Simulated scan of single mutants.
Amino acid sequence: MDTTGEPRGRRKADNEAAGLDSGNDATDPATEAFVAHRNLLFTVAYEMLGSAADAEDVLQEAWLRWVKVDVGQVSDQRAYLVRITTRQALNRLRSMKRRRESYVGSWLPEPLLTTPDVAADVELSESVSMALMLVLETLTPTERAVFVLREAFGIGYDEIAAAVDKTPAAVHQIAHRARLHVEARRPRRAVTARQAEAALEAFRRALETRDLQGLLEVLAPDVVAISDGGGIKQATPRPIIGAGKVARFIVGGLTKNDVPLTVEPTVVNGSPALALHVDGELDGVIAMRVEDTRITGLYYVRNPQKLTHIESETPLTLR
């Protein structure tokens, strides 16, 4: 089962049957076009859903519709593929909203181990950052689709209107409303990659040594920590707010467990992160939000069903 209760086992076989496996040669025009835009379509679906498992299912559904199209009659294949992918993602997002009401504990996006080019692309890395993905969760499905297509991918209003079945005028209004909503909640003070890495390194050292004072020095006073166990692994049912509470929770939890802990730097969703191994087994991934050189958000994904995309890199693109 995937993170939203969907069957997972059929995906690889479905992709291979559809000729979408990366090891297959694309020979017919429909397959060539789909494979050429696959990374873009996956990125669109993932930004809309926050789930790689569901994004893969959306791509399969989009493929099944694409192969029924007379490709020779499509003047802009990229736009057409984005449109059908958006529609399928919207359908799934609406059903996911209902399913998440029964999700055990806090919900976090599924982290992706990303390629170096994602981290190097400031616009792309921000658009898939854990912090922004959480903000997008507060939008309605249509607002999220419009925001993602317009702000991340720069798609025109007419094209978005066709994808979400709205008029261009309505899309203008939705985009404006969504932009104001996101801007009010996204990080206000950008930091450089070096500053983010320095904060992560300070946090890592304090974490490995159970250094309470070291954690207090790198955590912002109003830091928010969210953990996602999905009812499978232990996690806090609600966010923890405040440097003192977060630091004591972290140190107390590690001391209580008293097990060998290894903390390894990694890059998740285009940003520095940490992979935690307990007794040699992956326990979870910590992504973070850094503002003014201090950590203002900690996002700890422990749900094992959400850790399947951190063993190998996932290519993402806005183009």
Results as ranks from 00 to 15, higher is better:
residue 245 K to E: 12
residue 202 A to H: 15
residue 239 P to H: 04
residue 230 G to M: 13
residue 233 K to S: 11
residue 217 E to M: 05
residue 215 L to D: 07
residue 223 V to K: 05
residue 234 Q to V: 09
residue 236 T to K: 03
residue 234 Q to C: 00
residue 242 G to R: 01
residue 254 L to W: 07
residue 226 I to A: 05
residue 191 V to Q: 13
residue 223 V to D: 01
residue 212 L to R: 15
residue 215 L to H: 12
residue 203 F to R: 02
residue 201 E to D: 15
residue 182 V to L: 00
residue 228 D to N: 10
residue 196 A to D: 14
residue 242 G to F: 11
residue 211 D to L: 13
residue 241 I to F: 06
residue 238 R to I: 08
residue 249 F to Y: 09
residue 238 R to D: 07
residue 242 G to N: 07
residue 184 A to K: 08
residue 207 L to H: 11
residue 190 A to Q: 10
residue 236 T to M: 14
residue 220 A to V: 03
residue 205 R to A: 03
residue 243 A to N: 08
residue 188 R to S: 12
residue 221 P to V: 02
residue 194 R to T: 12
residue 209 T to Y: 05
residue 187 P to W: 12
residue 253 G to I: 02
residue 198 A to D: 15
residue 235 A to C: 09
residue 217 E to L: 06
residue 220 A to S: 13
residue 188 R to M: 07
residue 234 Q to L: 06
residue 193 A to Q: 14
residue 234 Q to T: 05
residue 220 A to I: 08
residue 195 Q to S: 14
residue 242 G to I: 04
residue 230 G to T: 07
residue 193 A to R: 15
residue 202 A to W: 11
residue 225 A to H: 06
residue 187 P to K: 14
residue 206 A to I: 01
residue 206 A to R: 13
residue 224 V to Q: 12
residue 196 A to W: 05
residue 235 A to S: 12
residue 188 R to F: 00
residue 192 T to D: 15
residue 249 F to S: 13
residue 212 L to S: 07
residue 190 A to P: 01
residue 199 A to I: 07
residue 196 A to Y: 12
residue 188 R to L: 02
residue 182 V to H: 00
residue 200 L to Q: 15
residue 181 H to A: 10
residue 206 A to Q: 10
residue 233 K to D: 15
residue 251 V to P: 03
residue 189 R to F: 15
residue 249 F to N: 09
residue 237 P to W: 08
residue 217 E to Y: 03
residue 185 R to G: 04
residue 193 A to K: 13
residue 226 I to K: 08
residue 237 P to G: 02
residue 194 R to G: 11
residue 234 Q to G: 11
residue 190 A to C: 09
residue 212 L to G: 10
residue 242 G to T: 05
residue 188 R to Q: 04
